[in-house]
């Protein structure tokens, strides 16, 4: 299984140049060559169905984090991820340009469609899905409370603000990467992120500041 893209590098840098560098840094002694997305797509179209698994390994983690950040539900995030990859498989022969950006748009639109179709105020993360690096029960309790409050605050944001905040602060992308993936300007995205921060701060500061 291919090594996941370091989260801080985001999906955009997971376009093949960044991914190649990430993998060779991690597994330099094992492998120095990674197939490009286009090479893998060619193999899948030629009948090697299992080659599609390489694309899943390559891109599922950042896309899962995006879907989870947008929906707040691990189950929904898994569903969106699965549906998106299957849709991508169906249309694999039609990809022009960057596969990762194309795939991201499918997932992002799946998340937005879900948000449009459901009126909800809160869905919490399953505890088992969350990593815990804290040692004491008090710290764990504190952390769980912040996690829930952050989820609730994120759920209050408009989808476009939530998307911008999740991409910037949860996925760790640069504004340039975000603009590239969302097809908008850096200035517009900065404004969305700033507005999201203002809203989150208003919702959380009384309790935590």
């Amino acid at each position: 299984m291919a090594a996941p893209i370091p989260a801080s590098e985001g999906l955009s840098r997971g376009s093949i140049r960044g991914y190649r560098s990430a993998v060779t840094n991690t597994h330099a002694a094992v492998s120095t060559e990674v197939d490009s997305d286009q090479e893998i797509i060619g193999r899948v179209i030629a009948g090697d169905r299992n080659a599609f698994g390489t694309l899943i390994n390559r891109y599922s983690d950042p896309l899962y984090r995006h879907a989870l950040g947008m929906t707040g539900s691990p189950d929904v995030a898994e569903d969106i991820l699965q549906t998106s990859f299957i849709k991508a498989y169906h249309h694999l022969g039609e990809v022009r340009g960057r596969f990762d950006a194309w795939l991201f748009r499918i997932v992002a639109n799946g998340c937005k469609d879900w948000l449009k179709n459901i009126r909800r105020t809160h869905l919490s993360y399953d505890e088992d899905d969350q990593p815990s690096n804290f040692n004491t029960p008090d710290e764990d309790l504190d952390r769980t409370e912040l996690r829930q409050d952050l989820d609730e605050a994120l759920a209050e944001l408009a989808p476009s603000l939530r998307e911008a905040f999740v991409m910037k602060h949860v996925e760790g992308r640069s504004y340039e990467e975000m603009a590239d993936l969302l097809g908008t300007t850096v200035g517009a995205l900065k404004m969305r992120v700033h507005r999201a921060r203002e809203a989150l701060q208003a919702l959380l500061e009384e309790k935590y500041a």
Partner: peptide, 28 residues
């Protein structure tokens, strides 16, 4: 601290298998 923890999250292991088994038999 919380967003950094979320950034380390990975796709649950069963998702890969679920996607592969749900792929259509026809080649794109």
């Amino acid at each position: 601290e919380e967003t950094s923890a979320r950034r380390r999250m990975t796709t649950p292991a069963h998702v890969h298998a679920n996607i592969m088994s749900a792929l259509p038999a026809a080649t794109p």
